[in-house]
Design a protein around this nucleic acid. Structure first.
Lengths: 147, 147
DNA sequence: TAAATTTATATCGTGGACGACATGATCGTG
DNA sequence: CACGATCATGTCGTCCACGATATAAATTTA
């Protein structure tokens, strides 16, 4: 009854939607120079943290499903960044391993997050605090689905 | 030099990326019931605020370009939600008008944001504050591109 | 152990986002 | 007025995201 007409500039979902788009656009030049898309970049970040994960484990970390990850990983494999290999212990699973090029990319991309912090005004603590709040909101939304 | 290895759970871009995806998934059931996608929904919100905008003005509000908006608006036109019409004053511009169905959708969708607030824990003030912070970060990123 | 179920990944179709480029209208200046 | 520049929109190709569904391997159950 008291549902007010929503206004774009008050909606958290739109703030996230538009901020995500803005971040993607800001990352694009640096990632283009490396031949990466943003989802490919975060996939590499996840693999630099822990190599040899299964597709499912990567999806859990990235909040993506196999129907998104499989073609993405195939493109990364075609680009020589990763290798996909069935787990001999459980042939249903596919494990993803960095190639030498994939590992080398970590050094080439090392300054990408630093540049982004600068674009955001370089107040690293405030940025980290905001990331924490956004992550908490995300986890509330994810949890709400199950409830 | 001191560029630390980025960690997914500390990156604001990934927080925004994953939170946006989670919000989209949370909205989906309600929007599916209305036959809308999320970008179509925010386009309607923008038109409910002010009808008859040009494609460019809509893009400015939604942070989208004509190459994204044109097909989206065509689908909405095919669904009977909007009407597109060349501005007689300047035939380069296309103005987008709500149809009766498009206006009626406002009532049908009135409880969608309310439901989302509940999914987020219903602390409306904290949500609004977070939206403000995320919007400010977005605007810093958008502004940084120009600099 | 054979059949049924569950699990992991992959495939297909639709919609969205964006760069590069095309088209047509308008504007500015000679 | 003409012609070149500019502007708004649209088209095309690529990649991403996701629902629905397929396939094959592992596990459970009978």
């Amino acid at each position: 009854m008291t549902d007010a007409a929503p206004r774009l500039d008050q909606m958290l979902c739109f703030a996230l939607y538009s901020a995500n788009g803005a971040m993607n656009r800001a990352y694009k030049p640096a990632l283009d120079a490396l031949g990466l898309t943003y989802p490919q970049y975060v996939t590499l970040v996840a693999l630099w943290e822990r190599d040899g994960r299964t597709v499912g484990q990567l999806g859990e970390a990235l909040f993506l499903e196999s129907n998104t990850l499989t073609p993405l990983l195939k493109r990364m494999e075609a680009a020589g960044l990763v290798r996909r290999q069935r787990d001999p212990e459980d042939e249903r699973q596919v494990r993803v391993f960095l190639t030498d090029d994939g590992r080398a990319m970590q050094a080439r991309a090392a300054d990408v997050p630093t540049r982004m912090l600068k674009a955001l005004g370089c107040d690293a603590e405030a940025i980290a605090a905001l990331a924490t709040e956004v992550t908490a909101a995300r986890d509330r939304v994810v949890g709400a689905k199950a409830a």
